[in-house]
Design a protein around this nucleic acid. Structure first.
Length: 559
RNA sequence: UGCCCGAUAGUAUAAUGGUAGUACGACAGAUUUUGGUUCUGUUUGUCUAGGUUCGAAUCCUGGUCGGGCAACCA
């Protein structure tokens, strides 16, 4: 019974169901998908979901995935974005079959347009954009035919060629499909196919001054590449009718569009406009500021590709509106990091401990596990001496109930070292605690403890003479509210003022001097950390990727 | 006063006419040299009203609620 359950396949999402049925029926022998970003911004967590979907499908089923840049609007697009997008996809762990650009097809698309004109299914319109909007009608009222709608095929052909030749200024003419101005679907009311833009394109330079609209580029590109399943978000549902109409009228390969709901993440925003605003108005330091929901930011923050892929897999794909809980993302990050992170001890807010019965000048080298989850049991060396730093919050003169840390007369274990007892609290004239005098139990050394003493708490610590200084950046959620994008008023009013806390001089164990950019660390009892690119030989900088779960903090919150 | 999507625990997602499950969260406990990890248990759900059926989350009809559609953006 349990065996059957184990072998039970994970249930399919609605797109996988469509694909399996297409494969079973023999409609396709393999599937072809594409990831179609517009190179005008950085990829974020929502794109990660789409990437995992498109590439994941062709990893699961026979076929492949193309990377196609939807670069039909030269004024907003740039190669800077092309490079960052490619880097992000690679980092996530996916490989595209072909690197393509909608702009590769400009010649072909122009011919498609001429074909439509020759079939009397498209015409050149001289109307201004205001006039076009006016005649379009509204969702509840039909539109009206443009006065230029009945031009002859020859005139349209001539005009369109002259548009291409650069004879007309921007905005003076468009090419429109001739469908139905009274259509209930607004997108079918003679949609614009081409517009004039005398602009420099990041790939085609000044070769073109007319550019196809999304609707006359995307589906056609899909068709040219024989994309079998063209997956996009729900806002394109109304476009599907036009997508199919154009493919049918052109008589080209019938790609099919399927729509899924875009993923939203709690406590952040993912609209390109809002993200751009955060960057340009300096609410964050850049697109890769570790508080951003961009892939480059998550990478810098220390998230792993595995954890993001796993997260995308868990949230799934469906058609209903959603707001994914960031705590699931954090769970996935912790789950992976717990397995791979090397354990280190770092004290953020030091309180000096002097072990009065430990010889001055003596140093012992304690060995502590690199990762208790790892089977090999690799260890590192941690120096122990008479003077140590512990976390200031780990000592309380008047401890509440269930406080398992240091207090006058109380004992705790120092991780991988000895059990100590607090004998005396040293204060300066103002009453601030400056040090603790403790005594250690010599027989309690970690690994050979014969003391028989049981303590509830274990603290992290750093030897004063061996301590290394490090800068630590503690990140919290960027917004104070779950869904800042849907809040009344300006979303920026909901920015969390405490989303970054910098600790300029933390005390770290010396092993951290050998930190590498591709290694992940768990600072014991503190969280997961990664070396930041701002690090230098003189100044170590660590980003907190995510905190550890903290049952004690939760307990305190309750009271 | 139009058209198009959608609605299952707090969140996300299954169940494809036949016992409403899973994950995260929350809560309780066990273990623990990280108040971490791990393990165990508990809690909470089919928008609504009808209909079809032996049987409905699933099919049908009406309603309610949420989202989208009137860029020379994608």
């Amino acid at each position: 019974m349990t065996e059957i359950k184990k072998e039970e396949e994970k249930s399919l999402n609605f797109i996988e169901e469509i694909i399996e049925s297409d494969l079973e029926s023999g409609k396709y022998k393999q599937i072809v998908t594409r990831f179609p970003p517009e190179p005008n911004g950085y990829l974020h967590i929502g794109h990660a979901s789409s990437i995992c979907l498109n590439f994941g499908l062709t990893a699961k089923y026979p076929g492949y995935t193309n990377l196609r840049f939807d670069d039909t609007n030269p004024v907003t697009e740039d190669t800077e974005y092309v490079e960052s997008i490619k880097g992000d996809i690679r980092w996530l762990g996916f490989t595209w079959k072909n690197e393509l650009y909608a702009s590769d097809y400009f010649g072909q698309l122009f011919e498609f347009a001429e074909l439509l004109i020759r079939k009397d299914l498209a015409y050149v319109d001289d109307s201004t954009s205001e006039a076009i909007a006016e005649l379009k009608g509204t969702p509840t009222h039909p539109g009206v035919n443009s006065p230029f709608r009945s031009r002859s095929i020859d005139e349209n052909l001539d005009l369109f060629r002259r548009m291409k030749a650069g004879e007309f200024p921007d905005g003076s003419k468009t090419l429109r499909a001739k469908i139905d101005m009274a259509h209930p679907n607004m997108l079918m009311r003679d949609p614009i196919l081409y517009r004039i833009k005398h602009a420099h394109h990041h790939r085609t330079g000044n070769e073109w001054c007319i550019y196809p609209m999304y609707d006359f580029a995307h589906g056609q590109s899909d068709s040219i590449e024989h994309i079998t399943h063209s997956l996009c978000t729900l806002e394109f549902v109304p476009h599907r009718e036009l997508y199919d109409w154009l493919i049918e009228m052109l008589g080209i390969y019938p790609s099919h569009q399927y729509e899924f709901a875009r993923r939203n993440l709690s406590y952040t925003v993912t609209s390109k406009r809002k993200l751009l605003q955060l960057v340009t108005e300096k609410h964050v330091t850049g697109w890769d500021d570790p508080r951003m929901p961009t892939i480059s930011a998550m990478r810098r923050r220390g998230y792993t590709p595995e954890s993001i892929r796993n997260y995308c897999d868990r949230i799934g794909i469906a058609k209903r509106d959603n707001l994914d809980d960031v705590s699931l993302l954090e769970f996935c990050v912790r789950e992976h990091l717990n397995k791979i992170a090397l354990r280190r001890m770092v004290v953020f807010d030091p309180l000096k401990v002097i072990i009065t019965n430990y010889p001055e000048g003596k140093v012992e080298h304690m060995s502590s596990e690199e990762n208790p989850e790892a089977a090999e049991g690799a260890v590192r060396d941690v120096p122990f001496s008479r003077e140590l730093y512990i976390e200031r919050e780990d000592f309380l003169e008047q401890p509440p109930k269930k406080f398992f840390r240091l207090a006058p007369g109380q004992m705790v274990r120092l991780k991988s070292a000895y059990i100590i007892r607090c004998d005396e609290v040293v204060k300066d004239p103002s009453g601030k605690i400056t040090a603790l005098h403790c005594s250690y139990i010599p027989e309690s050394r970690s690994g050979s403890d014969t003391s028989g003493i049981n303590v509830k708490g274990t603290l992290h610590w750093v030897s004063v003479p061996h301590a290394v200084s490090a800068e630590v950046r503690l990140y919290d959620r960027l917004f104070r509210v779950e869904d800042p994008g849907n809040e009344e008023g300006d979303f920026k009013d909901f920015i969390n003022p405490d989303s970054l806390e910098t600790i300029s001089h933390a005390y770290a164990e010396p092993a951290l001097l050998q930190s590498k950019f591709d290694e992940r660390y768990q600072f014991l009892r503190k969280g997961y950390f990664v070396l930041d690119k701002d690090s230098s030989e003189e100044n170590l900088v660590f980003n907190r990727t995510v905190t550890l779960k903290d049952a004690w903090a939760k307990e305190q919150k309750k009271s």
